[in-house]
Simulated assay, not measured.
Amino acid sequence: MKIAGRTFVVSGGASGLGRACVRDICAAGGNAMILDMNDELGTALATELGPSTAQFLPCDVSDTASIASAVAATVAWTAQTGKPLGGIIPAAGVGHPGLILDKQLRPVPLESVDFVLSINLRGTLDLVRQLLPHLAATEPEGADGERGVVVMVASAAAFEGQMGQVAYAASKGAVASMTLPMARDLSRFGIRVVTVAPSMFESNMTAHMSDKVRTGLKKAMEFPPRAGQPEEFSSLVRHALENVMLNGVVIRLDGATRMPSKL
């Protein structure tokens, strides 16, 4: 998929990994629709990149109506710019750790589980499914007849979830698991599906970690012994967008890190 001349929708695009993806897409000649709950950061990023290249829309991915409104606005923008939809990067996500049973024998609140699943899993799936009819309706490009790419975000926790990550690991494991069947469903339309599973990267989610937790995580890292940078994540996402042979695969981006059960 050629990024130039196409429009890409990035949820969670106002900060962290999503913001890096937005900047990479625009630098490659594409347009980016930034979906996020943070009005200040989203507006600032869109202003920085310019209205002809990036637009910001407030969007709550746990709310189907909010997604529908964002999809309609995106379709209208692509018609205005003449840059058809080229891909979807649902990067919005939350951590919200909690033991399934704490020391006082209290089970994790179901509201906490629902919060994580509604954003990380349901929000990912809902955004993708609502945009897909429009992506499948675009003109195919190249000898392969490619129409677009979905790049989802899982996590190393999908494979080695730590204590307190039952809901988070479940949400990211589900994203990883639906990659291949989604790719199979969409192959007839010339739409690819790739998932990136990062370990600890510098982002809003990891910014609140204590020094103790960061030190413990670094001990689990092989090389490089540090958190990943957002630009290293977006570089892989860009390659996934551009390389037509990447399809139905989950790519770990973790520097050989394998998380221990606890820190």
Score class of each variant (00 low, 15 high):
Val249Ser: 09
Pro51Ile: 01
Thr81Cys: 07
Asn38Arg: 09
Ser62Ala: 13
Gly12Lys: 05
Phe223Val: 01
Leu85Pro: 00
Asn247Arg: 09
Asp24Leu: 13
Leu125Lys: 03
Leu85Met: 01
Pro224Thr: 03
Ala32Phe: 00
Ala143Arg: 15
Ala156Val: 07
Gly95His: 08
Ser155Phe: 08
Val250Gly: 10
Thr138Gly: 00
Leu246Tyr: 12
Pro90Gln: 14
Met205Thr: 09
Leu117Gln: 13
Ala156Trp: 01
Glu222Ile: 14
Met245Asp: 13
Ala256Phe: 00
Pro224Val: 06
Gly173Met: 11
Ala176Asp: 07
Ala65Arg: 00
Pro140Ala: 07
Asp211Pro: 04
Gly145Arg: 01
Ile34Ser: 02
Met163Val: 07
Leu125Val: 08
Phe56Arg: 05
Arg122Ser: 07
Gly190Lys: 03
Glu139Thr: 02
Gly42Ala: 14
Asp102Glu: 12
Ala256His: 09
Phe233Tyr: 14
Arg258Val: 15
Ile34Met: 08
Asp211Phe: 04
Thr257Phe: 02
Leu17Arg: 08
Asn243Glu: 15
Ala73Cys: 09
Pro109Asp: 14
Met33Cys: 07
Lys103Gln: 13
Pro225Ala: 06
Trp77Ser: 09
Phe8Glu: 03
Phe8Leu: 05
Val61Glu: 03
Ala54Cys: 13
Ala170Trp: 08
Phe233Gln: 13
Leu246Pro: 14
Leu17Met: 11
Val61Trp: 01
Phe233Asp: 11
Pro260Ile: 09
Gly5Met: 13
Asn247Phe: 07
Lys219Ala: 15
Ser177Leu: 08
Ala154Val: 02
Ala158Gln: 14
Ser118Asp: 10
Ala167Tyr: 01
Asp211Gln: 12
Met163Ala: 15
Pro58Asn: 12
Thr78Ile: 03
Met259Phe: 11
Pro109Tyr: 12
His208Glu: 15
Leu110Gly: 14
Val153Gly: 10
Met200Ala: 12
Val9Gln: 11
Ala176Arg: 06
Asn247Ser: 13
Asp39Cys: 09
Met37Trp: 00
Cys59Pro: 06
Asn120Gly: 04
Met163Gly: 11
Ser52Gln: 06
Ala4Arg: 13
Glu139Arg: 04
Met182Leu: 15
Met205Lys: 03
Thr53Glu: 07
Ala92Glu: 04
Phe201Met: 15
Ile88Trp: 01
Asp39Lys: 06
Val250Ala: 07
Val108His: 05
Leu135Cys: 02
Glu202Gln: 06
Ala27Tyr: 04
Phe56Ser: 13
Pro230Trp: 04
Phe115Arg: 05
Val22Ser: 04
Thr257Arg: 08
Gly228Asn: 10
Leu105Ser: 12
Leu132Glu: 06
Ser234His: 07
Ile100Met: 14
Ala73Leu: 09
Ala4Gln: 12
Ser62Trp: 02
Lys83Cys: 11
Gly42Gln: 06
Leu241Met: 15
Ile100Lys: 05
Pro109Cys: 10
Met178Thr: 13
Val151Glu: 13
Gly50Thr: 08
Phe201Asn: 07
Asp63Ile: 01
Thr81Ile: 02
Pro109Phe: 12
Glu242Cys: 10
Phe115Ser: 03
Thr7Gly: 11
Thr7Lys: 08
Leu110Asn: 12
Leu57Gly: 03
